[in-house]
Design a protein around this nucleic acid. Structure first.
Lengths: 332, 332
DNA sequence: TTGAAAGCGTTACCAA
DNA sequence: TTGGTAACGCTTTCAA
C-alpha cells in the first residue's frame, strides 16, 4: 500500500506523488493512526527486540552493581541501534531453549552460565543468534562466548595471597555457582594457580551456613586466606566471620570477585578481583547485533567466536599477611 | 485447528480424540515445532509483555540501587503472572506517548516523572492501561499514580534539621528533576515544611558545578543544612564539599533521598529519607496487571486510583547541630 | 470429532 | 505511479 511507503521508508520501487503522500500523512494524523508493530514483525520476521536471560533474575541484588553494569553495557549498544531489551522469565525457569525461537526476539544474550551439554546442543537449533556471557572458551561449542579470563584472575588473587605469605588457601563457592561452567572454570583456575606456586589449597563449597564455615576457621582449620567466587559471597563471609569472632584480615584474609562498589562499603573494605562487566556485556551485545544484521552466510565463522577479558586485582583492606606460627612465637 | 487445541488449552468447544492428540504431540516434538508468539499475539491482541519506561535509562547508576529495587518490585509480580518485561528506549527519547499503543505491550509502567500536561492528555488516548510512578496525586488526571508521600518526607527531613538547631535550610535539586512533577512536589513540600516551623529556606538549583555551590557555602552563605532531591545528588554534593574544604556535617549538614545502601558507603554516611521503592513498584505493577486482566468496564473507577507511600528518615552521620554564632564565640 | 475458511495488520510483488 | 492480491502463523467460527 502507498500508506506503508509513505509512513515508513519501505518499498523503494513504489513511488507516491507528493500530494498523495501529504494527504496520507494528514489523514493518518487525524485518525491517530498507529502502525501495529506485531503485524509488521510478523511480516518481516524482525521484532527489533533482543532477550536477555539472567541467571537468577527473579531478584537483582540491591547492593551488588553487577546487574546495573551489565545492563548498561547491553543498553549502550542496543538502544542506539534501535533495539528494545526484554527480560524474560520463562526462558529462565526451565531452560527452555526452544522457546528462544518463538519469534519474539531477533537475538538472545545468554548470561546464565549453568547450562548443560544438552542445553548448549539445543541452542544450535535456534533460528536466531545466541551469544553467551560467563561461558569459558570451549564450554559452549558453536555459540559465541564472552567471558572473564578466570585463569589470569585467580592467578592474580593467589599470587597476591602467596606474596603476603599465605601457604594454605581456599576457594569458596556457593551451591548455585558450583555447577556453572564459570564456577568450575574458576575452581580449576584456582587449583592451577596454587599448584603453580607450590601451595596447598582446597575448593570449599559453602551454603552460607555459619556452622559449616567453622571447619575452615582460621584458628582451627588449615586456611589462612579464602578467595571467593563473588563479592556477594565474600560479603556474606565477612558477616559470618564477624558473627563467629574471626577477625578479617588479621586471622583470615578474604578476596572477592567483581570489585564492585560494594567492596568499598564493607568493613573491612574488600580486596577483590576486577572484571570489566560492562565492557564484556557491551562487546557481547555488539557481536549479537552484528550476527543479527549481517548476511547469514558471511558470519558463519563468527559463530565460533570467543573472547576472554583480562582482570585486575584491587587490593583493599581485607587481605594482609597471615599470623604465622613463627610470628606467633615471636609475639609471645 | 486441532493442533492449536491440543498444544494450548484454547478453543474448549473443540474436542480432539486422545489418539489424535498424542499423535499431534509426537509429530510436534519431531518437527521441533515452536508456536509463533507474534502471530498468536496479533490474533489475540495480547502480548504478555509490559513496557517499563524509566526516566533516563540509557544509563543506570552503578552505585545507587534505585533501579535494581524498582525492577525487583516490578519483576516479583510480573513474572509469576507470566509477563515479560521490556525496557524500551524509543518511548523515552521523544515522549512518544502514541507509540505506547503500537501493539507491543499489554500495559505500560511509566516511571518517568517529567511529563507535560499534553503528554498526560495523550496518555488517555492509549488503547492499553498505563500506570505512573513518581506522579504526585492529582498531577496526572485519569492515570493511576503511585508516589512517595513527599509532604511527609520533607517534613521529616526539615523537622530533623530544625530539631538539631538549624535555622536556615536549603532544598537542592538538579536541572533534570527540577521540572518533573515529583521535583516540584518535593520543592513545594520543603517550602511548606519550613513555613510550618517558622524557618527560612530556599530551593536551590544546582547543576553539579562547584563554583555555583560556593554561593551557598556555609561560611559565606546563609544555609547550614541542605536537603537533597536524591542520594545521588547528595553524594555529589559531599564530593564537592570535600573538594571545597567544607566539612560535613560540622559546617554543613546534608540529607539525601532514597536511603539506599549507597548512604552507608559515603563518608560521612549519609542521613537520608527512605522511600519504599520496591513496594511502590510492586503495587504499581500489581495494579497494572489488574487493569490489563480485568473486565474493561469494571475497572473504570480504578483509572483514577492514586496511592501515596509514607517515608521514613534514616539518620546517619551527615547531619549534626550547626555551628551557631554563639557557639563560635564560645569556642573563641 | 474433524476440516475448511476468514481475519488480525502489515509488506512485497505484480499487474494495470 | 497506482491499486489489488497474497502471505506471515495463529485462533475462532462455522459446516460437515
Amino acid at each position: 500500500m502507498a500508506v506503508s511507503a509513505v509512513l515508513h521508508g519501505t518499498g523503494r520501487n513504489v513511488k507516491v506523488s507528493d500530494e498523495k503522500a501529504e494527504m496520507i500523512r494528514r489523514v493518518a494524523q487525524e485518525l491517530r493512526y498507529q502502525p501495529n508493530r506485531l503485524a509488521r514483525s510478523l511480516r518481516n520476521s524482525r521484532t527489533q527486540m533482543i532477550g536477555v536471560v539472567f541467571q537468577h533474575f527473579d531478584r537483582l541484588s540491591d547492593e551488588n552493581p553487577y546487574y546495573p553494569q551489565l545492563l548498561n553495557g547491553v543498553m549502550s549498544t542496543l538502544f542506539p541501534s534501535g533495539y528494545t531489551l526484554a527480560l524474560c522469565p520463562k526462558l529462565v525457569q526451565r531452560s527452555d531453549a526452544a522457546a528462544i525461537s518463538d519469534g519474539r526476539f531477533d537475538g538472545v544474550l545468554w548470561c546464565r552460565p549453568d547450562f548443560t551439554e544438552e542445553a548448549v546442543a539445543s541452542l544450535r537449533h535456534t533460528s536466531i543468534p545466541v551469544v553467551m556471557m560467563h561461558a569459558p572458551p570451549g564450554s559452549a561449542p558453536g555459540v559465541p562466548t564472552f567471558c572473564a579470563n578466570n585463569r589470569g584472575a585467580l592467578k592474580l588473587a593467589v599470587d597476591h595471597l602467596a606474596d603476603l605469605g599465605h601457604e594454605r588457601l581456599g576457594f569458596v563457592i556457593d551451591p548455585i555457582n558450583e555447577h556453572t561452567a564459570e564456577g568450575r572454570d574458576r575452581a580449576d583456575a584456582f587449583r592451577q594457580a596454587i599448584a603453580g606456586r607450590g601451595l596447598q589449597g582446597d575448593v570449599l563449597y559453602w551454603d552460607y551456613d555459619g556452622s559449616e564455615l567453622e571447619a575452615y576457621r582460621m584458628g582451627n582449620g588449615p586456611h589462612t586466606a579464602l578467595a571467593c567466587f563473588s563479592d556477594t559471597l565474600a560479603g556474606r563471609l565477612l558477616v559470618t566471620c564477624r558473627r563467629l569472632g574471626i577477625r578479617v584480615p588479621r586471622e583470615l584474609s578474604i578476596v572477592g570477585f567483581d570489585s564492585s562498589s560494594f567492596c568499598e562499603s564493607t568493613s573491612p573494605r574488600l580486596t577483590s578481583v576486577f572484571q570489566p562487566v560492562e565492557r564484556i556485556a557491551f562487546e557481547a551485545t555488539t557481536h549479537l547485533i552484528r550476527l543479527i544484521e549481517a548476511d547469514p552466510d558471511s558470519v558463519r565463522d563468527d559463530q565460533a567466536h570467543s573472547s576472554i577479558y583480562d582482570c585486575g586485582l584491587d587490593v583493599r583492606d581485607s587481605t594482609s599477611a597471615p599470623i604465622t606460627s613463627s610470628k606467633r612465637h615471636h609475639s609471645c
